[in-house]
């Protein structure tokens, strides 16, 4: 079944090809394939042609290999190792190399601007690709950590939607936390 091709149509009517095994990295696509409703092309009205190749790239790397994508999603920690019946040191080494290689790949893969990040999060959410969603959401979280509220509003283009009275109140909170922050 590895050679079966699936065709995906982006919101702007461009068609992309993907192996069925790779497509199975997406729960949404997997359900469509297993549901037998496959009619040549799967339309994806929420994913544009700008971002679909990026999604396909991820699926190619992780499709049909759910085990390792899970491990990566958990920060590369292999939690199941100890319960494997035959613990093999060679296998363990190979696994480590594979995990390291995947991490490196992910690092390069994740090198993009914020607009792509939004698009990828939305696509991963829509297509139910857990590994990709974890990866992108974690990146977004890392962009918030350690920032000030001002920096966050600016970076993420969030407008404060408080009424002037609430804003006064909020500035007090902010100042108070700035004080407390200084001790950490």
């Amino acid at each position: 079944m590895s050679s079966t091709k699936i065709f995906l149509k982006s919101s702007d009517d461009k068609t992309f090809e993907i192996d069925e095994t790779a497509a199975r990295a997406s729960e949404t696509l997997k359900n469509i394939i297993d549901g037998g409703c496959l009619d040549g092309v799967i339309p994806l009205p929420n994913v544009s042609s700008n971002i679909l190749p990026k999604v396909i790239e991820y699926c190619k790397k992780h499709g049909g290999d759910n085990g390792s994508s899970k491990k990566i999603a958990n920060g590369g920690v292999d939690k199941d190792k100890e319960i494997l019946p035959d613990y093999d040191e060679e296998e363990d080494k190979r696994e480590k190399v594979r995990v390291d290689e995947l991490k490196k790949w992910e690092e390069e893969y994740m090198d993009f601007d914020q607009q792509v990040l939004y698009d990828l999060m939305l696509a991963a959410n829509y297509l139910h690709i857990k590994g990709l969603l974890d990866l992108t959401v974690e990146k977004a979280a890392s962009m918030i950590r350690g920032r000030t509220p001002d920096q966050i509003r600016e970076n993420f283009n969030i407008n404060s939607d408080f009424t002037p009275e609430e804003e006064e109140e909020m500035i007090l909170i902010e100042d108070e936390w700035d004080d407390e922050w200084a001790f950490d």
Binding site: P149, I152, N159, E166, I173, W177
Partner: peptide, 10 residues
């Protein structure tokens, strides 16, 4: 951080 970021938006 979450408590501090209450002031970001509603």
């Amino acid at each position: 951080s979450l408590l501090r970021f209450r002031c970001v938006c509603k």
